[in-house]
Design a protein around this nucleic acid. Structure first.
Length: 381
RNA sequence: GCAGGGGUUCCCGAGUGGCCAAAGGGGGCGGGCUGUAAACCCGCUGGCUCAGCCUUCGGAGGUUCGAAUCCUCCCCCCUGCACCA
């Protein structure tokens, strides 16, 4: 146990020796992790630092989960950055609600404080904000790698974005964090938190960053990029997406996600199946994992229809104009549906479709397939 | 404020009067193959009951038989200068 487990998969634990000192004090440490509310899902990527939080909790420490509702509400006023859409209050609240539920697949909810940063940020008046801004300099903030890159690339940086690290740092002041967790991309923000805490007369937090989980597209997993597995996503989705990662990423996923020391089985398919099973099991339990795997085997590997297929109604008219019907059933545009048919991607009861207009009688009760894994059953007349 | 450079289809990015629904790449989708929703190969990728029609190139007008491409005004971004409590 002890420190090795707490810092598993860590990249930075700064400053050196500080964590040890805090642990020696013997009191429960407050371990902070902030999460954005821009997307409704917490991802397997967020799971990596959450797993560290869980490790601290097992040692008797307290997790402090910060929901960035206020930071999200403010958004990015440049209006240019699509990566930070401004959400409505209702959406933010709904997302925040789901967060705790999702995070609880990893952390111990009984040893977790959930705090919304609007709780303190909303109360700051201008004078206090100025006090906060005096703790740092523009040069320091621009040092941060992504700002530096955008400067070089001559991309816009709004002033409010420069304030983000300070807001996050202030969170640490508000909750009196002992340790702040984050991906390696967060290193700057975590260190900024130290300086600001010090300026506010608090003992600065320890910055603990963990490796960033790389997704199937080779990019860091993030909700805004869409390349993620949600911690509470449907079992079949989780399973399929896990099977989607390239073989080369398996060792990293084993280490970061499963925290497994296993040298991988020589058979990458088996290794990946085991990973997929593991992910679904943690989120939904072993039974769900088994069902998800059965679904995967049946639909993806064997190319058969799933056991459960949702039922749809036939549109009026005879013959039935298939592009319009498919568009309706599968949420496509009729043009997409046409292409799908033209490319041999549509089957009715297993038979390839060539015609755009099909007699009504041939569709009643039929199994319609669009592509490899989209199925629908037409209600029998 | 002044000067210069920019805003193109989901993203990046070509395109400077007709051959442009717009190159190329990414992503996505479909097909093939397979050990997987890996890898690889091929195709498709604005909409529409589709050999045709309709709507797109920051916005609004205009020139022209014809505009993403030319003109006018406006909005936004970048760089430099000026300003700098």
């Amino acid at each position: 146990m002890g420190i090795a487990e707490l810092t598993r998969n860590a990249v930075h634990v700064l400053p050196e020796g500080a964590l040890e000192d805090k642990l020696e004090a013997g009191r429960p440490l407050r371990v902070k992790l902030g999460i954005d509310v821009t997307a409704p899902d917490i991802t397997l990527g967020n799971g990596i630092p959450l797993q560290r939080m869980a490790a601290f909790q097992r040692e008797g420490h307290v997790g402090v989960l910060i929901v960035g509702d206020y930071t999200t509400r403010i958004g990015d006023p440049s209006g240019r950055s699509a990566s930070r859409p401004i959400l409505s209050d209702a959406e933010i609240d709904r997302n925040a609600q789901r967060f705790v539920e999702q995070a609880s697949t990893i952390i111990d909810p009984d040893r977790t404080e959930v705090r919304f940063n609007g709780e303190w940020l909303a109360k700051l008046d201008f004078a206090e904000i100025l006090r906060l801004t005096r703790t740092t300099t523009v040069a320091q903030i621009l040092e941060r790698d992504d700002f530096a890159k955008r400067q070089r690339a001559r991309e816009p940086i709004s002033v409010s974005e420069l304030l983000y690290p300070l807001m996050q740092a202030y969170d640490s002041v508000a909750v009196e964090a002992d340790v702040e967790l984050g991906g390696t991309d967060q290193l700057y923000n975590l260190l900024a938190g130290r300086e600001v805490m010090q300026a506010y007369g608090l003992e600065p937090q320890v910055a603990l960053t963990v490796e960033y989980l790389v997704s199937w597209d080779g990019e860091g997993m993030s909700a805004s990029r869409g390349n993620y597995i949600g911690l509470k996503e449907a079992p079949e989705e989780q399973f399929g997406k896990a099977m989607r990662i390239p073989d080369e990423l398996l060792p990293q996923w084993y280490r970061l996600v499963m925290e497994s020391e296993d040298t991988l089985a020589s058979d990458p398919l088996q290794a990946k199946l085991a990973l997929a099973r593991w992910v679904v099991t943690r989120a939904h339990g072993a039974d769900a994992a088994q069902l998800a795997e059965a679904h995967f085997t049946r639909v993806v590997r064997e190319g058969r229809a799933p056991e459960e297929v949702s039922e749809v109604e036939l549109p009026p008219g005879d013959p039935v104009h298939l592009p319009a019907a498919l568009a309706e059933w599968f949420g496509l545009s009729t043009s997409e549906a046409r292409r799908l048919i033209a490319q041999g991607g549509v089957r009715v009861d297993g038979g390839l479709v060539g015609e755009l207009d099909v007699p009504r009688t041939s569709l009643g009760g039929a199994l319609i397939q669009a592509g490899k894994r989209r199925f629908v059953r037409v209600a029998s007349t």
